[in-house]
Every structure is written in structure tokens, then in C-alpha cells.
């Protein structure tokens, strides 16, 4: 009887721990340590101008949420998407898998919110295009 109780408790704990590990690594969830993932926003080092885009290394992806379809350099990789569809699995995977910087372009209030959400989900090298209308 005692053995049964111990096995049950142990099994339940193992399931809980496994679920916690899965939750922490599953894409689409927030990372721990909020301040670490928000640090760029303190000093505005996450803000970038159009002139600085060429200085970024790797494959730069521009996520354009400007409904007026802003004109970017044709050599740039642009993902045109509205803010309500940005976190769909397909779009999130494109952003997550990009090997380089990701730049958010659109209304400042929207891009700021999306930057914070994506940063807290663990997306690195993420910037806001601060001077594009």
C-alpha cells in the first residue's frame, strides 16, 4: 500500500515537472527574467533608423505592419502582416527562424507593444524602425 502511494506521488510529481519543462521551452510562451528581455528598451538601443539597416549583419527581415505598404529597398526581405495576425503560428515561425535581425515597422504604439511581447518570448536582435512613416 505504501509503495503504491509513493509511486503515485512520484509519478504525479514527474508529470508536473515534465509539464513545467515543456511549458518553458514550447514556442509562444514568455521567458523568465522579464527585465533581461526588456533591457534594450531602457536606453532605446532597440530603435533603428532606415540608414542603419544596411549595417545589420545576417538576413534582415522587415515586418511591415503599415497598412499603406511602405516602400522598402527591393533587396530587403519584407513580411507584410497586420498586427492581429503577427502571432499566428506561421508568421511567428518566420520571425523566430530568421537568421539575422528583425525590424518592426508601423505605428509607434503598435510596434512598441509588439516589440515587448516578442522580446519577452525570447526573440533576439529585434528592432523598431523609428523614423519611417
Amino acid at each position: 500500500m505504501k509503495k503504491l502511494i509513493h509511486s503515485t506521488v512520484f509519478g504525479a510529481m514527474a508529470i508536473i515537472i515534465a509539464l513545467m519543462i515543456i511549458k518553458s521551452v514550447r514556442p509562444g510562451n514568455f521567458r523568465n527574467n522579464t527585465s533581461k528581455w526588456a533591457v534594450q528598451s531602457y536606453e532605446n538601443s532597440n530603435l533603428i533608423s532606415v540608414d542603419m539597416i544596411d549595417t545589420l549583419k545576417g538576413n534582415t527581415l522587415i515586418v511591415d505592419m503599415n497598412s499603406q505598404k511602405a516602400a522598402f529597398n527591393k533587396n530587403l526581405n519584407v513580411l507584410q502582416v497586420s498586427s492581429d495576425l503577427l502571432l499566428s503560428n506561421e508568421n511567428y515561425k518566420k520571425i523566430k527562424s530568421n537568421k539575422g535581425s528583425v525590424i518592426l515597422s508601423g505605428d509607434p504604439a503598435e510596434t512598441a507593444q509588439i516589440w515587448m511581447v516578442l522580446s519577452q518570448m525570447g526573440i533576439e536582435d529585434l528592432y523598431i524602425l523609428a523614423d519611417h512613416n
Partner: peptide, 10 residues
Amino acid sequence: DFKSNYALVL
């Protein structure tokens, strides 16, 4: 708009 919207999300 930047910092206020960061704070709103947080």
C-alpha cells in the same frame, strides 16, 4: 509612444 506602450504590455 514607446515607453508607455512597453509599460502597458508589461
